[in-house]
Computed example of a mutant assay.
Amino acid sequence: MDANGHHVGVTVSDLDRAVAFYRDELGLDVAAEFSVGGEAFADAVDVPGASAAFAHLDAGGVRLELVAYDPAGHAVETPALNRPGATHLGLSVPDVDAVYEGLSDDVETLSEPRTTESGTRICFLRDPEGNLVELLDA
């Protein structure tokens, strides 16, 4: 099999709010917005009667797919990074410190930017849905 990367998907409860965060706070461009429904889609995602609104954002070689389902599922507790099943989106930026300083006051961060033992400058933050996003120097 010759598989190639296509996208990273994140399910959200409020698509407009999520798009605004990734566009306005992190500078990602919206590449496409669309909706999908119907029996084939509902069967494929194993959610009876499902339809969904999608937004694809360009993350520089990675497509970030934000999706809001109807009907919406139940929220689950976001696991800590050291627990199996934990996920995060990693985005390289030209200057982690500059992005950190430019974040809105209401953006939750886990810490100020730090330099790891490997020499990488990183900072973790949460999007409006509580999903973890790692920023690292390009």
Rank of each mutant, 00 (worst) to 15 (best):
L81C: 02
E33C: 12
E33M: 07
G37H: 09
S51T: 05
H56I: 00
G37P: 07
V45T: 02
A52F: 06
A59Q: 12
E65P: 10
G85L: 06
A53V: 02
P79G: 07
A68I: 01
L81K: 03
L89M: 07
A86C: 06
G38S: 12
F41L: 10
A53R: 15
R83N: 08
N82H: 15
L89Q: 02
A40Y: 04
P79R: 11
A44Y: 08
V76N: 12
F34G: 00
G49E: 03
Y69K: 01
G38V: 00
R83C: 07
A86F: 09
A44L: 15
A42H: 00
V47L: 13
P48I: 02
A40S: 14
D43P: 03
P84E: 06
H74L: 13
F54P: 08
E65T: 07
R63F: 01
G37Q: 03
A59T: 04
F34K: 08
F54T: 03
E77G: 07
P71S: 07
V62T: 15
R63Y: 00
V76S: 08
G60E: 10
P71K: 09
L64H: 09
V67N: 05
D46E: 13
G85F: 14
A72L: 07
D70N: 13
V62P: 03
G49T: 04
A75F: 11
R63D: 10
A50V: 01
V76M: 09
G73H: 08
S35C: 03
G61M: 14
D58Y: 06
A40K: 12
H88R: 14
S51A: 14
A59F: 09
A86W: 09
G38R: 06
A53S: 15
D58M: 05
A53F: 08
D43T: 13
E77T: 12
H74S: 14
A53D: 15
A75W: 14
L64Q: 11
G61A: 12
A55V: 05
G85R: 11
L81F: 10
G38L: 02
S35Y: 04
E77P: 11
D70P: 01
D46K: 11
H74F: 04
A40V: 09
L81R: 14
A42F: 00
L57F: 03
N82F: 14
A53T: 04
L89R: 04
F41M: 01
D58A: 15
V36G: 01
A75I: 00
T87C: 11
L89D: 05
H88N: 07
T87M: 06
P71R: 15
L81Q: 11
S35D: 14
V62I: 02
P84Q: 09
V67M: 14
D70G: 07
D43C: 10
